[in-house]
């Protein structure tokens, strides 16, 4: 499944300062669908190079990180249970530092 992931608000610094990543992620073994929960752990393993605690807390994003799936607040699609489809665009923006 091809996805576009975008990191902003300083989160890009955790993944080699690259803002936009085109990635291919498959559902977890034995699952039909790819959920945000699985995507987050995939991102943590494969993209985050330093300070993962800036990105995640427990199995979700750290409070203060905004998540948009296809330009839609993930709070509307079920947060961790959001299921993703091919060519979806997922955006992570940290709101945790000054402005």
């Amino acid at each position: 499944m091809k996805l576009t992931l975008e990191f902003g608000g300083g989160l890009e610094l955790l993944c080699d300062s690259v803002k936009i990543h085109h990635v291919s992620v498959e559902p977890q073994d034995g699952e039909q669908k790819l959920t945000m929960k699985h995507l987050l752990s995939w991102v943590r393993t494969n993209l985050i190079k330093e300070r993962p605690e800036m990105f995640m807390k427990g199995d979700s994003v750290r409070p203060g990180v905004l998540v948009l799936v296809n330009d839609c607040d993930w709070e509307l699609s079920g947060q961790l249970d959001t299921s993703l489809e091919d060519k979806d665009v997922v955006v992570f923006i940290s709101t945790l530092h000054g402005g």
Binding site: G8, G9, G10, L13, L66, L68, D71, D73, V91, I93, T95, H97, G98, G99
Partner: peptide, 17 residues
């Protein structure tokens, strides 16, 4: 504010001091 800036594609700077 973040969502507004993002949706409107406003040009802002976001790196920590």
């Amino acid at each position: 504010i973040f969502t507004y800036a993002y949706f409107k594609r406003l040009d802002y700077f976001s790196t920590e001091c």
